[in-house]
């Protein structure tokens, strides 16, 4: 093994500083008052307004209608993130199962067609998607927010590769053991894919959580606003001589960062376990 030396630590410390400083600055700044931030800029030392800023952000009813709170937005983002991740995993697992285990004509062609169309980013197909959702009357619903983004080429591809690596004998043993296609999927493939699911959950939750453009199009009702929109709307209030609530924007940003961090920390254990456990 390589012995850790001073220089290695130096590089690591630099890396940590580089990544952590903006977060720390954001957090410290959020504990000052808006006026202070406006006059002095970003802060590195803690201010005295931590509790009140965060309470305000989470509970004050704001927005145009004066009904949406920060907590509500956190919840919306959470629904979007989890619904997104869970939906994508279920959908892409089923798709991959069909592609890998059922021999139908042109399965590979079908896969590649799906794959290439889905490689197009949301922004490219956003107009038709929006139109379909409008006509279905799904504007301002969680369904409308989540469903159009569920089909995932990445997820399907990962699961396809994973299923292909599962030895054929396992399927054969299960067949002899009397497990049909459904039982094999539930009893064998799903438990085997746990680590894969954890990995995709991390990626997709963060992706869903960070969605900005799609929720903005799909929601006009403020009770469906997500955190990402909330941060933006705070900075948009330039009325008269009012200073934007920088502190609240920073507080919301810090809050917005926490759930993805938690998800990564929780699922990372599984993820690494899956990578290090040999012999599937």
């Amino acid at each position: 093994m390589h012995k850790t030396r001073f220089f290695d630590h130096l590089i690591l410390i630099c890396g940590v500083l580089f990544l952590m400083t903006p977060v720390v600055v954001a957090f410290m700044t959020s504990t000052h008052t808006a006026a202070e931030i406006h006059s002095k800029g970003l802060m590195l030392s803690p201010g005295g307004h931590f509790a009140e800023t965060y309470t305000t952000v989470l509970t004050r009813q704001g927005g145009f209608t004066g009904q949406v709170t920060g907590a509500r937005m956190v919840m919306n983002s959470f629904i979007l993130g989890v619904g997104f991740a869970a939906g994508k995993i279920i959908l892409s697992m089923l798709a991959a199962y069909a592609i890998v285990y059922f021999r139908f004509r042109m399965a590979n062609l079908a896969f590649w067609i799906i794959f290439t169309t889905l490689l197009l980013p949301l922004e490219v197909r956003i107009m038709p998607s929006y139109q379909v959702m409008t006509q279905l009357g799904l504007i301002n619903t969680y369904t409308g927010l989540i469903v159009p983004l569920l089909a995932s080429a990445t997820g399907t591809f990962y699961f396809r590769q994973f299923f292909k690596s599962v030895p054929d004998e396992l399927l054969e043993a299960a067949r002899i053991d009397g497990a049909g296609p459904f039982k094999f999927f539930i009893d064998v493939l799903v438990p085997l894919s746990r680590t894969m699911m954890a990995a995709i959950f991390i990626i997709m939750f963060v992706y869903g959580w960070n969605q900005y453009l799609w929720p903005m199009l799909m929601t006009t009702d403020e009770s469906f606003f997500t955190l990402m929109r909330g941060i933006k709307s705070i900075l948009q209030v330039w009325i008269g001589s009012q200073i934007p609530d920088y502190n609240e924007a920073f507080a919301l940003a810090v809050l917005a960062m926490l759930p993805p961090v938690l998800i990564v920390v929780i699922f990372q254990r599984w993820f690494i376990k899956g990578l290090t456990e040999s012999d599937k």
Binding site: E169, L170, A173, R175, I176, G178, D187, V188, L192
Partner: peptide, 18 residues
């Protein structure tokens, strides 16, 4: 295969790992 009343032992054992 399930209804043939046979059991098979595979070269790579094919045990369910989980």
């Amino acid at each position: 295969p399930a209804d043939r009343d046979i059991a098979m032992v595979f070269q790579n054992y094919a045990l369910y790992p989980h």
